[in-house]
Write a protein that binds this DNA or RNA. Structure first.
Length: 200
DNA sequence: CTAGCGATCATCT
DNA sequence: GATGATCGCTAGG
């Protein structure tokens, strides 16, 4: 059921970002399983991508995880508040990663509501990377953990989308990345209500 | 409905 | 000492 390690070794990040749409992402935190299928992703294309933390081959304590072999999680804190989940891809030394921006929840709804401090399911429960992190109980303790583990994994349950059902547009919140901010590295499922804000 | 802004801290300079 | 791969609340139309 879990995606094989080979899936993550692909050195074409945008292809992986595209293929992750429709895959099921799960976490098992303190016995509670939560998750759903991915509906929005963003690709970060290694050392030549100005929007990436690893731009210019920048290796620091934080970015080390991105340089690992594909198939592990890169989790970091953004704006002092939000835990963001990325899927590290490609071979060791190649800092490619895919940011999980939105999930269509299917399992553990009650637990996600509790974590999000909500009482009824609304589209924003898992729309946006910070929301996904919170709903799935992602924390920096999961940084560097393998997607073959029993705390965090991705499954193929046969769901897939055609090119017509998927949009490829510029990424969010990366205006500082100059010309690279315009690259169509953000992928999402058209019309899905769990896709983050302006679009769909 | 949209626009503006505060929260809050690890990381890098 | 400055700054985010953001969110959600508030105010105003």
């Amino acid at each position: 059921m879990k995606l094989p390690e080979s899936f993550y070794l692909n050195n074409n990040v945008t292809e992986v970002a595209r293929k992750l749409l429709g895959k099921y992402l799960f976490t098992c935190i303190e016995g509670a399983i939560t998750g759903g299928y991915i509906v929005e992703t963003e690709a970060y294309n290694g050392i030549i991508d100005k929007a990436s933390h690893a731009y210019g081959n920048r290796q620091t304590a934080r970015t080390q995880t991105m340089f690992a072999k594909g198939g592990v999680a890169y989790v970091y804190l953004c704006y002092g508040i939000h835990e963001m989940l990325n899927v590290v891809t490609s071979v060791e030394g190649q800092p490619h990663a895919v940011l999980i921006r939105a999930v269509n929840p299917t399992v553990g709804i009650e637990e996600m509501l509790y974590r999000r401090n909500m009482t009824v399911v609304k589209p924003n429960i898992t729309a946006g990377p910070g929301s996904v992190g919170k709903a799935l109980g992602i924390s920096r303790k999961l940084n560097c953990i393998s997607f073959q583990s029993n705390e965090l994994w991705i499954e193929d349950q046969g769901l897939s989308f055609t090119d017509d059902e998927i949009a490829a547009v510029p990424r969010i919140g990366v205006a500082y990345a100059a010309e690279d901010a315009l690259l169509p590295y953000r992928f999402y499922v058209k019309g899905n209500v769990y896709v983050s804000k302006p679009n769909r």
